[in-house]
Write a protein that binds this DNA or RNA. Structure first.
Length: 273
DNA sequence: CGTTACCCCTGGAGGC
DNA sequence: TGCCTCCAGGGGTAAC
């Protein structure tokens, strides 16, 4: 589910309610996510005040300096975080709670591809799952030159490259498709064959698409909801994603769906070269 | 090194 | 109604 915009929207929704609040309890109803939820979280965190929520790629990182560590959380394909009143009964797939005096942060993850982990110390990026993460697309380092250097000489299709988290984080199936449409570039095009001007355009459309999606509260295709339970609306603005067979909004040509590296790609044959 | 195939898991949609 | 197949915002690992 969640790509960078959905994770960022979750973060922004949680922050005002959870920052500086003390943890009352941690409850792992089903610890068997993609990786097991550590059993000792409640012992580590109870009584400690949450001092930061940071996003790195599609991870949310919760910092407790007095407990000397970070909680790392990934929503996988179907995860969502909601703030619910303290006594709310847990529903199906509500696998993990982080309890505060006035609210509970509840992780729902039907497919259990998410992770909840602990990393001791000051630097969460020392964790093996975070160590190899690539560039943040909304950071100053993400420039047309950086993208050009990355693409140079590569035969990999541009979409596959954009979705490789070791190179660039946060861009998943929806936003890769939409950014490429806006840039007029086919997802199948070998990265190394794209000219400098078009790569510059692509760097711009990636940033724009992600920022716009955050503004829209993310995309709610299926499982994703914001922390207040509301749905995002960016999916309503998708020009190509999940629009196979429907007319291109720009030229009317039927949107094509192909399979790339095991994932569906959507694009317009006419508008994207 | 680059690229693909398969796996984790549940649920919804559509075909028969 | 049921049963079967395929598909889904991710990503790690093994295999070619």
């Amino acid at each position: 589910m969640p790509e960078l915009p959905e994770v960022e929207v979750s973060r922004l929704g949680l922050l005002p309610h959870l920052l500086d609040e003390p943890v009352l309890d941690c409850v792992a109803r089903r610890p068997d996510l993609r990786l097991p939820i550590p059993q000792d979280l409640a012992a580590r965190l109870t009584g400690h005040r949450l001092r930061a929520i940071v996003r790195r790629g599609k991870y949310l990182l919760f910092h407790w300096p007095t407990a000397n560590g970070w909680l790392l959380l990934h929503l996988g394909m179907s995860g969502s975080l909601r703030l619910v009143p303290p006594v709310t009964a847990a529903g199906a797939h509500d696998h993990f709670d982080l309890c505060f005096p006035a609210t509970v942060m509840r992780l729902k993850d039907p497919r259990r591809f998410g992770v909840v982990l602990w990393q001791t110390g000051d630097d969460p990026e020392t964790h093996p799952l975070l160590k190899h993460l690539g560039m943040e697309p909304l950071s100053d380092g993400f420039t047309a030159d950086w993208l050009a250097t990355l693409a140079r000489g590569r035969k990999t299709p541009i979409k596959t490259l954009l979705m490789d988290a070791r190179l660039l984080v946060g861009v998943g199936n929806i936003y890769a498709a939409e950014s490429l449409f806006r840039a007029g570039i086919s997802p199948l095009r070998p990265a190394g064959t794209i000219g400098a001007a078009r790569l510059e355009k692509l760097a711009t459309t990636i940033r724009e698409t992600l920022r716009e999606a955050i503004e829209a509260g993310g995309s709610s295709m299926r499982d994703y909801v914001r922390s207040d339970g509301g749905a995002g609306s960016f999916q309503l603005r998708c020009a190509v994603y999940a629009r196979a067979g429907q007319p291109c909004l720009q030229c009317g040509t039927s949107i094509r769906q192909v399979r790339q590296a095991g994932r569906s790609s959507f694009y317009c044959l006419q508008c994207q070269k």
